[in-house]
Design a protein around this nucleic acid. Structure first.
Lengths: 331, 331
DNA sequence: GAATAAGAGCGAAACGTTTCGCGGTCAGGA
DNA sequence: TCCTGACCGCGAAACGTTTCGCTCTTATTC
């Protein structure tokens, strides 16, 4: 359907080599340059990137594999990454494995089949096995949101432990001594880290902890919050350690007509919009999504340009605690 | 790096043609089949989709071009579409033009260069000009969320006019006679439709309308709501006609300590989570995101299989009004 | 037992680029 | 005038598949 370089050849009488040189910015005589330009215009010619990819062995496509596209977290990051990749002439191939480790392995294979030049992934699996094929292929890989024990990959992560510490310290400062945490099960990397940070921060103080582990879902946040509210010696404050959980917990409080911070204090996670829309405004731990995206994309571009010369690089970004009105002072 | 079909040839002594037949499910003797299987295993062979794409002239990639990935709307739909495409062996190439019509045209060209087999797009531009190149190429195109006057494209859209009508009728039923609407400017397709639906529904009743047009942003929702609240004859109810506007309006009400539905009634748009997290729960118009995604992907797959034989097909889906507690009765 | 058909495999030619190595031209310096 | 480079253009050979048209083998039928 589309015109090829051969059509340009016919129209201009020049050789394929010369036309290719033109397309790739080489030196071509002004008159020939003009002739080719005209032909391209006339034919609506456009480089067939598939053919080019076959020959050059690079597709200028980066594969992005994540575990939940519905997450705001994901959307924001993807959007920013796409922006940066495109600025460098790269496109983005997107896969969503929906938190399914088996699918995750298949998707990697799929991406490799498509000959992507690099892979940015939000891992689901507990170990890096699923990346084996990709690593053997020698293409750059960047991990987001979690890393593996074998620190063999470039990674951009957030300091989840300190995030919990931030929350705990704030609550302690307000005088709370019985503090709840609703969090994900330990087999989720981020949940584990946040839990660990919470425990460590609590340990040194004499404060009493109350932990509700479960899925990273609205449902778990909802149920766990309801249970905490029903306890006879219930916590005076609760740390809601991810977005979905925060959402669920707020819904539970609304339903039970629990007013905060009067009856209970809370700190939420991840989403400023949610913080503002709830009344009174929630204290909120937020992740630097923008920066995560930028760093991941930049590291990828750098590897793509300079190869895997340097050692794997783990970049740890800090979360922020932003002020709200959902913590009450205990006297 | 990766093994090629030629390596398999060396290992098995069979011809390229036979191996290709194996890969594409043709008839091959059991013993040869086994031999090839073994070789593939041993070499970790994987089909190079780029080479295959060059030869077969199809990449099994669908390009998706949208105007704002940060939107929940987008995330949910993309996620579901990716799922369906993958089930049919297709991958998804993602571009975000950020509501910039110029970029939109470039991205289409970019996708065509990558030789995608089809394009699903959430249009930004006011007319279909930017799709010209894609149409000339003859690949299937599916529009989501808006259509053009020349109904030459398959489209999956939502009945925005009826959505407004739903909202207005509900408010009328509760006795409201002075009704506000905060909406996007008329040059946004969906905003225009919703506004038109609102006006038409209001027309026949004697009720008084108060309309605040602007950008489709949280900021506009916030400012417009503040202004409405400050009016001396302010509306007794306001229809917030998209997600960002709803968000902004709720923030404004929180800030001004306006309690609803006591002081003012509201109906929001697009997001059930938001509806639930706000207290009291918001009445909400919601779009059938799941269904939009499914239909768009299905139409694309059908075109990909059967060509563009049939006439362009415009599918109009209905929104739903889901109950909350944010509308008060006027007596 | 000959004729026929079906089943398998093969070689070679594509698909649309890029790139290597060669050759020709022309200007400038010795 | 000859030599040296720089500059340009060219032909041909890839890149890793699929597919067309052919041949060979084997089973089936009368």
């Amino acid at each position: 359907m589309g015109a090829t370089i051969r059509d340009i050849q016919k129209l201009t009488g020049l050789s394929l080599a010369t036309i290719s040189k033109y397309l790739n910015g080489g030196n071509v005589l002004p008159e020939n340059r003009a002739a080719i330009g005209r032909a391209i215009e006339e034919l609506h010619y456009e480089v067939n990137e598939v053919a080019r990819g076959l020959k050059t062995r690079q597709t200028r496509i980066v594969g992005v594999l994540l575990h939940d596209l519905k997450n705001i977290f994901a959307g924001t990051i993807i959007s920013r990454m796409e922006d940066i990749l495109r600025q460098h002439g790269y496109g983005m191939f997107l896969c969503d494995c929906r938190g399914n480790p088996e699918l995750e392995g298949e998707e990697i294979q799929f991406l490799l089949g498509k000959q992507v030049d690099g892979i940015i992934t939000f891992p689901t699996s507990e170990n890096s096995g699923y990346l084996k094929l990709a690593r053997e292929r020698g293409i750059p890989i960047v991990l987001i949101d979690r890393m593996f024990d074998d620190q063999e990959f470039d990674s951009v992560i957030v300091d989840n432990e300190t995030a919990s510490k931030l929350a705990v310290e704030k609550l302690l400062a307000y005088g709370h001594r019985r503090i709840g945490m609703i969090c994900g099960d330990e087999h989720y990397y981020t949940a584990r880290k946040r839990l660990y940070g919470f425990c460590r921060a609590m340990e040194v103080t004499g404060a009493e902890a109350c932990i509700a582990k479960g899925e990273l879902t609205v449902g778990h946040g909802y149920e766990a919050m309801k249970k905490m509210l029903d306890m006879k010696e219930r916590p005076t404050a609760v740390f809601l350690s991810n977005y979905e959980i925060t959402l669920g917990a707020v819904i539970a409080m609304n339903e039970q007509n629990v007013s905060f911070p009067k009856e209970i204090s809370v700190i939420g996670f991840d989403n400023m919009m949610l913080a503002q829309v709830v009344k009174p405004k929630l204290w909120m731990i937020t992740q630097p999504m923008e920066q995560i995206a930028v760093r991941a994309a930049e590291i990828m571009m750098e590897r793509l340009k300079n190869g895997s010369s340097r050692e794997p690089q783990v970049e740890i970004l800090q979360t922020m605690l932003s002020e709200g009105e959902s913590i009450g002072r205990i006297v």
